[in-house]
């Protein structure tokens, strides 16, 4: 696929080589991931400060989180990172069908993660373990228990939004794969989506022990 001047169609006019275009995309994506780390960084910072202020509260409150569901979700997301990586590998080898099935599996696992998260959230809503002034639960010992749940809902909520954004992007990649936009020579968008998805996974890997496994 190339135009009259021998410029491949996937190569934008302002780049001279595919290599240059791919390297630019990589730099751009890594910088974007850096901004994501800093976006979450503010919340991790707030977590650290309030955990230092209220160590007993964090310990008591964390026992109301379901470690089994949290651990299941961790496994689900790590598996989805594997299927994402396999999707990229398949396209590197030009295997379109394998890419499609791996992307579908990634989407399915991401959906599973959200369903489990929904079960956890609705249980807490039911008990009144809500953030800030909506907090009505009385079972946690220690002052200001709503602070723990405020931070829990903000961090897992922001993470959940990133999971949804990831699913939209993966869905878009799936569509483009079925439309033959990619080949063994050009698969940069899938690879960039993969980088993003691994970051979403990685953030959860930090969230899980910080909330569910307070010793």
């Amino acid at each position: 696929m190339s135009n009259a001047e021998g410029h491949p169609t996937h190569l934008a006019h302002h780049f001279s080589t595919t290599e240059q275009q791919k390297d630019s995309a990589k730099i751009g994506m890594w910088l974007f991931l850096l901004t994501e780390v800093l976006l979450f960084g503010g919340l991790f910072c707030a977590y650290a400060i309030f955990r230092a202020w209220y160590p007993d509260l964090f310990h008591n409150a964390h026992s109301f989180l379901d470690t089994g569901l949290g651990a299941t979700n961790t496994v689900v997301l790590i598996t989805s990172s594997l299927t994402m990586a396999l999707a990229i590998r398949a396209m590197q080898l030009g295997n379109k069908n394998a890419t499609i099935w791996n992307l579908v599996a990634t989407l399915g696992l991401a959906g599973t993660f959200l369903v489990i998260k929904y079960i956890e959230y609705s249980h807490k809503f039911h008990l009144g373990q809500l953030p800030g002034k909506y907090y009505t639960f009385t079972g946690v010992e220690g002052g200001n228990p709503h602070i723990f749940f405020s931070i829990y809902f903000m961090m897992t909520g922001l993470h959940g939004i990133h999971v949804i954004a990831g699913m939209i992007t993966i869905g878009w990649m799936l569509y483009r794969t079925t439309k033959n936009h990619f080949s063994a020579e050009y698969y940069t968008p899938i690879e960039m989506t993969g980088l993003y998805w691994h970051l979403v996974d990685l953030i959860w890997i930090f969230l899980f022990p910080l909330f569910y496994l307070i010793g």
Binding site: T35, L39, F40, G41, G42, G132, K133, I147, M154, L158
Partner: peptide, 19 residues
């Protein structure tokens, strides 16, 4: 990005009083 998360917290503080 840190400003971004800060104003998100401010908005949540104002709307749902996360505390």
């Amino acid at each position: 990005p840190v400003l971004g998360i800060t104003v998100v917290l401010l908005i949540l503080e104002r709307m749902v009083h996360i505390g």
